[in-house]
């Protein structure tokens, strides 16, 4: 049992590492995501302006919407790309479980989105002249949880739509209901981070986020076995 868990974890690592290696080789995925996010933040700052009294209210929602669309642009077709290249069958003949492949992709998506956020969040704080007044670790936690949600939804939706040609319609339709339970509390927490939100005050939202993430991950893992098998 312990050996199997260990073996699955190493397989997850190999899948993630391969995707990172491919991304380093191609580069267009991460660059297109960063470019899209940059332009979106810039256009928002020009439209709203740095001195708008509503900037603190609007910006958190705006940031998460940008992250969501950035993810949809670059990461939400991660399985479709394997399908188009024919490599999906290479993964299916490997002596590993479908869950390890899904989790490997989730971690890759999480890392990819985190790289984009590392560029975009500091830029947005400069352009909109605001700062997070909470504990920096807590700020990281809030962004990490929201990003994990986007990564799980992204990998699952990508798996669900990889066999269909109408994925451009299906991806947003499937994404929105799946992403909302974590998306809304993430926006609320990000908004309150500006006002110095502490961990104890954030507990209700953190509970909702944690439970939603667990439910989403378990459902995705169970569903993925069927998606991936045939």
């Amino acid at each position: 049992m312990k050996d199997e868990v260990l073996s699955n974890l190493t397989h997850v690592f190999y899948i993630t590492l391969k995707d990172i290696q491919l991304e380093f080789r191609r580069k267009y995925e991460v660059f297109s995501m960063i470019t899209f996010a940059f332009i979106s933040v810039l256009m928002s700052s020009f439209s709203i302006g740095p001195f708008s009294p509503y900037a603190n209210e609007i910006l958190p929602a705006l940031l998460w919407i940008i992250f969501l669309f950035t993810g949809m642009l670059g990461f939400y077709t991660v399985f479709a790309r394997e399908m188009e290249q024919g490599t999906i069958n290479g993964l299916r003949v490997l002596p590993t479980s479908s869950q390890t492949i899904l989790i490997g992709k989730v971690i890759y998506g999480f890392l990819l989105m985190s790289v984009v956020e590392l560029f975009v969040v500091p830029l947005s704080t400069v352009l909109f002249r605001y700062s997070f007044n909470s504990n920096p670790l807590f700020v990281v936690l809030v962004f990490a949880l929201g990003t994990l949600d986007l990564a799980i939804v992204g990998a699952t939706v990508s798996g669900l739509t990889m066999y269909t040609e109408s994925r451009t319609i299906l991806i947003p339709l499937l994404t929105f209901p799946l992403v909302l339970p974590v998306f809304i509390p993430s926006v609320i927490l990000t908004k309150n981070l500006v006002y110095g939100l502490t961990f104890s005050f954030a507990l209700p939202e953190l509970r909702i986020i944690s439970l939603s993430l667990i439910a989403l991950l378990v459902t995705s893992i169970l569903l993925f076995e069927y998606i991936f098998s045939d």
């Binding site: 290696q21 491919l22 080789r25 191609r26 290249q85 024919g86 490599t87 069958n89 290479g90 003949v93």
Partner: peptide, 15 residues
């Protein structure tokens, strides 16, 4: 115990 060679390659084109 299986080795499967498909009609189309399973190799990643960028690697």
């Amino acid at each position: 115990m299986i080795g499967y060679l498909a009609h189309d390659s399973f190799l990643y084109r960028d690697l």
